[in-house]
């Protein structure tokens, strides 16, 4: 990774001097976490040279699809589980056959529904964040439940991503459906929609906007909110009283990987308790999937949050997804309040 030799004309054409063993990793988690993982892995496996690049899950899935048949990626580590499941469903990833017995139930579940093609590495619960400064300035009582967000006191103050472009928002949509049933979920989402000032494209954008006071309230993943709050923004985090859904971050080995052995080593490495315990060092507050890994004190405590029994097999399938999104478009929609 840190090989910083002079990039000469020779290097332009040479595809790298005779390196021991190269492992090509795409990382969809936060950059610092990616760097930490690579450094730790290379320290343990000095004979493997890890080539890592960070790309978002959507970009990675698009690249894996385009490269199908002659992939340049060996392992895809991190990022929300749905795209990993889609890759597994489309036969773009392969089973790693690693031992998952130490993992928590939701992580094993991931491996089961994908025939071992993708394994859970962390979980993050969905939540509500609000900017304490803005809400107290405007005299708005903070929300406690999903239901509160329908209240007219939040008109023009809520920001959430569009489920057509964002996996985070799709998790929210699926959570509402699992909490309230499909019909009521749509009614509730439409009612919340009356208060939404904009549907962003990216799932992490609403919480960033809330942190800076561009919006009062946001919906997103709690670990992102924890990170923003720990940077010093006046962001308060709410675990909704009705219960909430969660995402599972995953790791997959790409079908046709050139270095399968190295890839398998990486997967085993990333599931180990001592490795997962290091995530908080770089401000990654997701809950680790290894039952023996230490959970950071800042991490949202999944035990105290009312978590729903999220059905990844059903709501991760393309068929359900397309149906729910079509209903969302028809009944909730993007009202474009700015025009």
């Amino acid at each position: 990774m840190k090989r910083l030799g002079l990039i000469s004309a020779a290097a332009m054409f040479a595809s790298g001097a005779a390196m021991a063993d190269e492992l090509s990793v795409v990382c969809s988690a936060e950059q610092d976490w990616c760097d930490l993982m690579v450094a730790a892995f290379e320290a343990e496996n000095p004979d493997i040279d890890v080539l890592m690049v960070r790309k978002s899950t959507g970009e990675t899935l698009a690249q894996v699809r385009a490269e199908a048949g002659n992939p340049k990626i060996d392992v895809w580590w991190g990022g929300t589980g749905d795209p990993h499941l889609i890759a597994a469903e489309e036969g773009l990833s392969q089973s790693s056959d690693v031992d998952t017995s130490e993992l928590l139930g939701w992580a094993q579940n991931m491996a089961q529904i994908s025939d071992g093609r993708t394994v859970g590495i962390y979980a993050g619960a969905l939540g509500i964040a609000y900017n304490a400064d803005i809400l107290s300035e405007k005299g708005i009582a903070p929300p406690e439940c999903w239901g509160d967000l329908e209240d007219p006191r939040f008109v023009g103050e809520i920001q959430v991503a569009n489920p057509n472009s964002s996996g985070t928002a799709y998790t929210e949509l699926a959570t509402f459906v699992q909490l309230f049933g499909e019909d009521e979920a749509m009614t509730k989402l439409a009612a919340v929609g009356q208060n939404v000032n904009s549907y962003t494209k990216s799932g992490s954008a609403p919480s960033k906007a809330a942190a800076r006071g561009e919006t009062g309230v946001s919906i997103g993943f709690m670990h992102d909110m924890v990170k923003l709050a720990s940077q010093g923004f006046p962001l308060k985090i709410v675990a909704p009283c009705e219960g909430t859904g969660y995402e599972v971050g995953a790791v997959s080995i790409i079908e046709g990987a050139r270095n399968f052995e190295g890839a398998k080593k990486w997967v085993e490495f990333s599931l180990r308790a001592d490795i997962q315990s290091r995530a908080p060092e770089v401000g990654a507050f997701q809950v680790p999937s290894n039952s023996n890994a230490q959970v950071a004190p800042e991490s949202p405590d999944l035990a105290s949050i009312k978590l729903i029994d999220y059905d990844f097999a059903t709501y991760g399938s393309s068929e359900t997804r397309e149906r729910l999104l079509a209903r969302w478009d028809a009944e909730v929609g993007d009202p474009n309040p700015e025009q």
């Binding site: 978002s56 959507g58 970009e59 899935l61 698009a62 699809r65 749905d82 489920p163 057509n164 472009s165 964002s166 996996g167 928002a169 799709y170 494209k201 997804r321 397309e322 999104l325």
Partner: peptide
């Protein structure tokens, strides 16, 4: 962009 990388590719 989102038709390619979005939740529904």
């Amino acid at each position: 962009y989102f038709a390619i990388v979005g939740a529904v590719a």
